[in-house]
């Protein structure tokens, strides 16, 4: 990966725009998840929207009610681990600019990402191999740990992707 100084990232208008877009999508995702219990309640009148949200997450998550958080009397449309992953990614995206101001290179070490996978891998392994359920909170925490760290890989990559796409666009249209 390219060694790049972290300061160059947020002095660039394009990068700021892409970063805000990622933050918006991440927030929209959380909004869909946490608004579901409100929308699904009989009094809301937005049952159709709630149905679409539930269907949207069907291919992404097993949606087993016993393994999902209960909020205002209704389960969230994704399981506790997926909730942790999405919340973690959002938190990682929020703290990314503050963290990258303090470090020299924007890319964390590959070892950090692999270490972040260990708690979640252990949690999944305990469930599948030994049938030990560590509980919703633990699923949430291990999912969050992984995705907070993954966001530090994903955001610089997506910023670089925007560079490549713009370059390609410029080449195509002269």
């Amino acid at each position: 990966m390219q060694e790049r100084n972290s300061k160059s990232f947020f002095h660039n208008k394009q990068y700021r725009f892409v970063y805000l877009f990622i933050l918006f999508l991440s927030l929209l995702n959380l909004g869909m998840i946490f608004s579901f219990p409100v929308l699904v309640s009989k009094s809301s009148g937005y049952g159709f929207l709630a149905g679409l949200i539930k269907l949207f997450y069907t291919p992404l998550c097993h949606q087993i009610p016993e393994r999902s958080f209960l909020l205002w009397g209704h389960t969230l449309p994704v399981c506790s681990r997926c909730t942790g992953i999405y919340v973690g990614f959002f938190l990682g995206t929020v703290i990314f600019p503050f963290i990258t101001k303090k470090i020299k290179s924007i890319y964390p070490s590959k070892t950090i990402l692999l270490l972040a996978l260990v708690p979640m891998g252990l949690d999944v392994g305990l469930k599948w191999i030994f049938h030990i359920d560590t509980g919703l909170i633990f699923h949430f925490i291990t999912g969050s740990i992984f995705s907070i760290l993954f966001s530090f890989f994903a955001i610089p990559g997506l910023l670089e992707l925007s560079d490549l796409l713009i370059k390609r666009g410029e080449m195509s249209y002269g």
Binding site: V40, G47, F48, A50, G51, L52, K54, L55, P65, P77
Partner: peptide, 12 residues
């Protein structure tokens, strides 16, 4: 299986 699926969506 989705107990939380709203009835109007289920009907549709």
């Amino acid at each position: 299986n989705n107990q939380d699926m709203p009835p109007e969506f289920r009907d549709l």
